[in-house]
């Protein structure tokens, strides 16, 4: 067998391109992060950004960088990261490249949870009840969907169920807005629902980050399981994968990540769909190797989109959730078109 190993030394070893993917994407995220600190009504050069970040530059630059733009940049990276990861995980679990948190109605359900809290002013909008309510909403939608779908549901069932849950959450949100005691609160919520990172403070970061980090940690556990699921549920189980635990971790992880993000930034869709899609060819479609690149691509995408909304000349700043949907939804249509043959078939 030594001769065989010697004859194919290349086999099963990663190429240089795939080893550079994660560091490359990480570098891209860092560049975009710094860019995000520099771009806005006042454009700051890199020098001023770094000085401001470490509190050594002049007062105005320091204030802009640390108080206004840093929370926003942190949130863009963290939320984008967790959405990319959530998308890759759902796709791995369901063995389908069209799965994403949005498809599950998770953001709308999370938004409903958060809106309930805000609209009725039960709690201060900057308390931990907001992400908890959002997380519970997301948990309900993702859990319900996997329950409806069962282990061997076709993608069509999942999409239809997701649509139904999404619509229900949307209607419930509208009802909450409708019944909101304060019309100004309603207007504020409507804008917040569009998804934005504008004017977020470190307090928002502190609220969202624990949920996002916990969710991401949970989601990173199951790479090997997603890889084994390539062979289907039975074969994966026969390889020692405990599928019930995997499902539970993915549901919880997605709910935590989406809940934390939605609580402070509103609904930002399609990052979870687009990010894994962009990097999948570079990892040769391996669902385990996909996870870090998908997460980093998500971070880069959302940060870039959030920079874009500041550059586009418009009277009102365009909401970043609108931009991601405008870019993501057409791509979704393209994906559906490309996979339309598989859509009538089974997922499992």
């Amino acid at each position: 067998m030594d001769a065989l190993t010697a004859a194919r030394p290349d086999l099963l070893k990663r190429g240089a391109a795939s080893r550079l993917l994660v560091p490359g994407l990480a570098a891209l995220v860092v560049v975009l992060f710094l860019l995000s600190l520099g771009v806005g009504p006042v454009v700051l050069p890199l020098r001023a950004v770094i000085d401001g970040l470490f509190g050594t530059g002049d007062e105005a630059a320091r204030l802009i960088v640390r108080e206004i733009r840093l929370p926003r940049a942190i949130l863009a990276v963290a939320i984008g990261f967790s959405l990319g990861l959530a998308g890759a995980s759902l796709q791995g679990l369901l063995r389908n490249p069209l799965a994403s948190p949005s498809l599950f109605g998770a953001p709308s359900a999370a938004a409903f949870g958060a809106v309930l809290v805000i609209a009725f002013g039960v709690f201060d909008a900057l308390s931990y009840f907001l992400p908890i309510a959002a997380m519970l909403g997301a948990l309900l939608s993702v859990g319900l969907l996997l329950l409806i779908a069962g282990p061997r549901a076709s993608l069509l069932v999942i999409i239809l169920a997701g649509l139904a849950i999404s619509s229900l959450a949307g209607a419930a949100t509208s009802l909450a807005l409708n019944l909101a005691p304060n019309p100004f609160a309603a207007l504020e919520i409507a804008f917040w629902l569009l998804g934005s990172l504008e004017d977020r403070s470190m307090q928002h970061v502190m609220i969202a980050l624990p949920f996002i980090v916990a969710g991401s940690v949970l989601l990173f556990v199951d790479g090997a399981a997603f890889r084994a699921l390539t062979l289907g549920e039975d074969a994966a189980a026969s390889l020692g994968i405990r599928l019930n635990r995997v499902r539970l971790r993915v549901v919880l992880g997605v709910a935590l990540a989406v809940g934390g993000g939605v609580a402070v930034a509103g609904t930002i869709g399609f990052v979870g769909l687009v990010a894994p899609h962009l990097v999948r060819p570079f990892v040769r479609h391996d669902p385990a190797r996909l996870m870090w690149p998908a997460a980093l691509a998500g971070a880069a995408l959302l940060t870039a989109a959030d920079i874009l909304v500041r550059i586009i000349p418009a009277q009102n700043e365009i909401k970043v959730g609108v931009v991601t949907a405008l870019i993501g939804a057409p791509l979704f249509i393209v994906l559906v078109f490309r996979h339309r043959r598989g859509l009538t078939g089974e997922v499992g």
Partner: peptide, 13 residues
């Protein structure tokens, strides 16, 4: 097989 993996990667599962 649900993902278009390389044959060697499938066998490695």
């Amino acid at each position: 097989f649900h993902w278009p993996l390389a044959v060697a990667d499938v066998v490695a599962l």
